[in-house]
């Protein structure tokens, strides 16, 4: 970081993807900016491409021209990084271990676009120009921009600038965060946030460490402080519901107890676990650690949802 004050439009960050027309990342219809880099390693992670901070190569075999191209088998591509298997030279194969160090410059040599980088460096201005395109739909739906990840708090200066600029352009802001970051990072980002969607993955600290790589004391302390420091911000607690990890009453009651004293926590959402990440682990060469996790049953989800609705004073008519 330079000391010179920068035009906030020029601040850069690593962005994975900008997804328009999202309906589950905060109020209304939103554009979600996925930033790259995460500070947890949840074993069930569905977005392996968002985990590491640095841009990574990805491969779409549908676009590969195979043998007749073969550019990636030669320098500057790394030795052994790309290869053909015997009897099938229609598509190149990737040795993810050996191809790991590849950069944007080399990837751009791929003429078909089969190789691309997950994550690119973008300025606040570039991101906002994309986000601003749906301004009209935000106005019609009460939507706006959400920064998701990865972990937004890993790039606090970028995130703060992006959110601030969104407000400058009259766009509602939300973030999705696991809140595992120093408080000073949250303090930078939160003044520009209208709605904070935050995970509470596990209330039990040891189990939290087992499943995510870190204990949860700091996360819970951050959340409490955030609720108290930013009374005008809406908070929505969330739990990715995974049988065998956290789909139990103890967790559910623990979370409800934790958020109860804070009136600005407006909801608690359950995210029943879905295995979406699988193909990506393959394409990134990351080992998928949680190999056989089930989606929670409808009964379980319904049961917990009823507990939540009760806690929030929402009476549901029974079917």
């Amino acid at each position: 970081m330079t000391d010179k004050p920068k035009n906030i439009l020029d601040i850069t960050g690593t962005v994975l993807n900008i997804q328009r027309y999202c309906s589950h990342d905060g109020p209304g219809t939103r554009t979600t900016v996925f930033v790259k880099g995460c500070s947890l390693r949840c074993k069930w992670c569905g977005n392996p491409e968002s985990i590491r901070m640095k841009p990574e190569v990805s491969y779409d075999p549908n676009k590969c021209d195979g043998k007749k191209c073969s550019i990636c088998l030669k320098a500057p591509f790394p030795e052994g990084g790309f290869y053909f298997v015997e009897g099938d030279d229609s598509k190149v194969k990737v040795n993810w271990t050996l191809a790991a160090g590849i950069n944007q410059e080399i990837v751009s040599l791929c003429p078909t676009g089969a190789l691309e980088m997950f994550g690119k460096t973008m300025t606040v201005g570039e991101v906002m120009d994309e986000v601003e395109k749906d301004t009209s739909i935000y106005r019609n739906t009460g939507g706006g921009m959400t920064i998701s990840g990865g972990e937004v708090m890993l790039q606090p200066d970028f995130a703060a600038a992006l959110l601030q600029e969104a407000h400058n352009r009259g766009i509602n802001t939300a973030i999705e965060t696991a809140s595992n970051a120093p408080w000073s990072f949250l303090e930078k980002v939160l003044p520009h946030v209208d709605t904070m969607l935050h995970d509470i993955k596990l209330m039990n600290s040891e189990r939290h460490k087992k499943w995510t790589g870190v204990s949860n004391e700091r996360i819970l302390a951050n959340l409490k402080k955030a609720y108290e420091t930013f009374p005008d911000t809406d908070f929505i607690a969330r739990t990715p519901l995974i049988p065998g990890v956290n789909a139990d009453d103890e967790h559910m009651l623990g979370v409800l107890e934790f958020i109860k004293p804070h009136k600005n926590v407006i909801d608690y959402e359950l995210l029943p676990y879905h295995r979406f990440g699988l193909g990506k682990y393959d394409s990134l060469g990351v080992i998928y650690e949680l190999d056989d996790y089930k989606t929670p049953s409808d009964e379980v989800v319904k049961r917990f949802q009823t507990m939540i609705d009760k806690a929030f004073g929402r009476e549901l008519t029974t079917e």
Binding site: Q19, Y59, H274, F276, L278, G279, K280, S283
Partner: peptide, 17 residues
């Protein structure tokens, strides 16, 4: 299971080749 557009765009192998 159908994958979301986002996931599909990020994950070439999430659908059939």
């Amino acid at each position: 299971e159908k994958v979301s557009t986002l996931k599909a765009s990020l994950s070439p192998l999430a659908t059939s080749d």
